[in-house]
Design a binder for these strands. Structure first.
Lengths: 346, 346
DNA sequence: TTGTACGCGTTATCAC
DNA sequence: GTGATAACGCGTACAA
């Protein structure tokens, strides 16, 4: 393989035309005669030409790339494949429209001085998708104020060039609680995520509504945060269950936390689902393989990613685009919930 | 936010110098006086300057990006997080050296006409990491012959600009078999992947060696392919076990296939591990949550990715770099293997 | 130490 | 239809 990359200049020389004509021919412009077009394309083929997108980007100010600012693409995020599924959806959609996703490095300490807009502008990405950011992330305001088109996952902000994709978290939480209520549970605790997550807010709203609609008493002390972490949730759930043994069911704002809660229950001698029902959220792959398999609110993570990319590309190509998408999620009943057999105790 | 991106030209104007000086100052060249350097940097700061890496790439012919050609970044690959963990490792290492990974789309049909080299050259990535390719992929040879630096994961090819990272598959397989032999198993089947995988070759070698060293008979008909697929493995394992009921242990070339094998066993009324022992490979997250939790050969997937990126960057920056890295893997004993209680039957 | 001039590969504007 | 020419933003011989 020769060292020299063939350029349109080479083609022009070989074809005996100007570079302008070559450029137009290769881009399928109509103002070039059929036969020179054919001629040029043949030569380009023969010379194994491929365009230099870098040069093209420079002049076009479009790079056909989208930036990905996602949390948890690092050692820790490996356990729950939420991020990965979202990524797959993004990638598939981007592929359809011939965009290439580029992963931004945001996790190194020295890199941290670079602002979000700097990252995007340096790489000249056409737009960005953000996932896993906290509500109080200092970059968030920067995002919205900048003119870089972006789509947020699970943060409901819209603007001229800003949209978001999320699932119906409130309804999802309600469905979880309703399921437990139907099983006869009346003392339902809630292991939420943390204050900086929009989804936690929403899921709490859903929890609250469902509890009240069922005519149950809302007890704030039964709602605790597990930081979306398995360990923290285990610890927190243990404390909660020890303090309020009358709780017969737990709703957890993530499957990972539900897994932690199951362990907490086990360590307290309470078997799931016989003496404690647990509902998770997300439907990660683990949920169906865990034992007991988790009853959970399933989020279509792949679709979230796909829709996010789709919206972003819509924004970029100035299509009529909805700036907010809410995906329905779904109750999946597995083995971690069962009828409350303890209700007569109270 | 203003629409105009500030360029070195703007800085030059503001500083009353030439663009050359600005360029040199910002890049920390030594041939610029301390005070103009300081002056220019201040102005750059004030103007919120960030370099246009596209323009820089064009002239430097280096983009500080690495291409990722990985299989299974699509809907199907979501279940086993192997790819994701590798990705995390790559990303973390790339971040350290300030490279940005860019995901290449290789899965769409129309895109398929573009060759790998075309993809790489168009995007002007400095190098590529390939993962999940089959041995007979027509593009593989193309990559190796091209002058684009690349690192292969699990394909042992080296060259001037080509290296690879893998784990010690042969030894891993041996350890699996030795473990089973120690438990008293003498009839050990093997659900391998497929012919196009280098790792399958190696694992078969290891299987063969260990079987022979244990003084057992190597029966080729006990070795079948499960295509690395859970379903196929389930089907295949069922047939194998039905045909040769004397088999008391199964070694599977992936955890996903081991999961399939467990189901096959269940459907045949053989309980794991009591009446059938199963060893997997990979140690995916599912392995520890499945029931029974899988005994498996653990591969450090994160490290594979990290080392691959590290090697590639070494290649790019012309460091003295080892062109082949073999990572040790490890037997993890969980619940899917047990002492053979059936041995007296034969 | 600093500035001038040019090139990287491409597209776009305007003539012809 | 086609071809000069300028521009995109940056780095670097070379000259001063």
């Amino acid at each position: 393989m020769e060292d020299h990359m063939t350029t349109i200049k080479d083609i022009a020389k070989a074809a005996g035309t100007s570079v302008t004509t070559v450029s137009r021919a290769l881009n399928g412009h109509s103002d070039v005669s059929a036969k020179t077009m054919k001629h040029i394309k043949e030569i380009a083929d023969r010379l194994n030409y491929s365009p230099n997108v870098v040069a093209r980007s420079l002049v076009m100010k479009k790079s056909k790339t989208i930036g990905l600012l996602v949390s948890e693409i690092s050692r820790e995020g490996t356990k729950d494949n939420f991020t990965f599924e979202v990524l797959c959806g993004i990638n598939d959609c981007a592929a359809e429209y011939e965009y290439d996703p580029i992963l931004f490095n945001t996790n190194t300490s020295k890199q941290r001085i670079k602002s979000y807009t700097q990252l995007c502008r340096e790489r000249k990405v056409d737009g960005v998708i953000l996932q896993g950011m906290k509500k109080d992330d200092p970059y968030l305001i920067e995002v919205v104020e900048s003119d870089i088109p972006c789509v947020l996952i699970d943060i409901p902000i819209t603007g001229k060039n800003v949209g978001y994709v999320s699932t119906n978290n409130q309804l999802g939480a309600r469905r979880a609680i309703e399921h437990l209520v139907e099983l006869g549970h009346q003392h339902i605790g809630f292991i939420n995520g943390h204050e900086q997550a929009y989804v936690s807010e929403e899921r709490f709203k859903g929890y609250k509504q469902a509890i009240q609609e069922a005519g149950l008493e809302l007890r704030e002390e039964w709602v605790v945060n597990g930081q979306f972490s398995e360990r923290t949730a285990e610890f927190t759930a243990k404390k909660l269950l020890a303090t309020y043994p009358q709780i017969t069911a737990l709703f957890c704002a993530s499957d990972l936390m539900a897994l932690g809660a199951v362990r907490a229950a086990n360590s307290l001698g309470r078997k799931v689902p016989d003496s404690l029902s647990i509902v998770g959220f997300d439907d990660i792959v683990l949920a169906q393989y865990a034992s007991p398999a988790l009853t959970t609110i399933s989020q279509n993570k792949y679709l979230m990613g796909y829709q996010a990319a789709n919206m972003l590309i819509g924004l970029l190509e100035e299509k009529e685009t909805n700036k907010s998408v809410l995906i329905e999620n779904q109750l999946i009943v597995r083995e971690s919930t069962a009828e409350n057999k303890l209700k007569e105790w109270y």
